[in-house]
């Protein structure tokens, strides 16, 4: 069980003067239960990469398999396999189109050919997951709701198809800090409850730190690094900066303290853990007035 990319190369506008290689020889496997962050500078190939995960793009060479089914061989089998992947694009609220919130979320499950009873059940469950009240919101027009609520509806629409692999492209862009925290705690809950794989594409390192257990760094169409977030940020700081990836603020702060002579140990990248490491480095007593 996995999404597996083997030697994937993707070239835009092949055979024209605008030809550009967007992905070079990508080998990657994503297993159920993983929570993966994909980071990289604009143009590094992140979005091109994730569009291979459900066959939206066909590799120029190499192959993509979902649970051992090659997405570009047997059309019928591939169609089934693609349904296991749920994709939430950037600003998904721009893709809402139905007259009511219910109908919009129900669109995906209905297309799966589920009974109306099952559709209703899934819509309720998905709304609950993203923190939308069924009784007050289901019959309203999605376009009368706030941006944050519209984002939730769009995410609920994908969740309602119960994908085994959930791919999210910048789900928190444009939300306020509270909205961001809420969306992530809901995705985390969903991940914990359903045990599906979650792949998160983002520029926001603070988001990655909160949730991802594995981090893939893209640069110029290649996978540059693939490791645990803490390991990457503590050990490859300079390399990350050189490819235009922001390192989490907390790590640059802790490194500034180190540079100033405070021997802060490698700790988890949370405010609490950082405070503990600072206390330890100071020998438990403050040197500040």
């Amino acid at each position: 069980m996995s999404i597996k990319l083997e030697n994937v190369v993707y070239t835009y506008m092949q055979g024209t003067p605008y030809e550009r290689v967007a992905l070079q020889n990508i080998n990657l496997e994503i297993h159920p239960g993983e929570f993966i962050g994909i980071i990289g500078h604009t143009g590094s190939g992140k979005s091109t990469l994730i569009q291979h995960f459900n066959g939206l793009l066909k590799p120029t060479s190499g192959c993509v398999r979902i649970d051992d089914i090659d997405l570009h061989q047997n059309k019928k089998l591939a169609k089934q396999a693609k349904r296991k992947v749920g994709m939430v694009f950037q600003y998904p609220e721009h893709q809402l189109f139905e007259e009511t919130v219910f109908a919009d979320i129900a669109f995906g499950p209905r297309n799966l050919g589920l009974s109306e009873e099952e559709v209703d059940f899934r819509v309720r469950k998905a709304m609950q997951f993203v923190g939308l009240n069924y009784d007050t919101v289901a019959d309203r027009s999605p376009f009368q709701l706030s941006g944050g609520q519209m984002r939730r509806i769009a995410i609920a629409g994908v969740i309602a198809t119960e994908p085994e692999y959930l791919i999210l492209d910048e789900p928190s862009a444009g939300l306020d800090p509270r909205g961001r925290r809420e969306i992530f705690s809901q995705i985390k809950n969903l991940h914990a409850a359903a045990g599906n794989a979650v792949v998160l594409v983002t520029h926001n390192m603070e988001d990655v730190l909160q949730v991802a257990t594995r981090l893939i760094v893209m640069s110029e169409g290649r996978i540059l690094l693939d490791d645990k977030p803490e390991t990457l940020f503590w050990n490859y700081h300079e390399q990350l900066v050189s490819v235009g990836v922001d390192v989490p603020h907390i790590i640059s702060l802790l490194k500034k303290l180190r540079a100033a002579g405070l021997a802060v140990g490698e700790c988890q990248l949370t405010v609490e853990a950082a405070a503990t490491a600072i206390c330890e480095a100071l020998g438990g007593q403050s040197r500040a007035e």
Partner: peptide, 18 residues
């Protein structure tokens, strides 16, 4: 801001931080 957050956390642990 992160520095304010960490400073507060250190104060919560009885450290004297301005």
């Amino acid at each position: 801001p992160l520095a304010a957050d960490i400073a507060q956390e250190l104060r919560n642990r009885n450290m004297l931080i301005p």
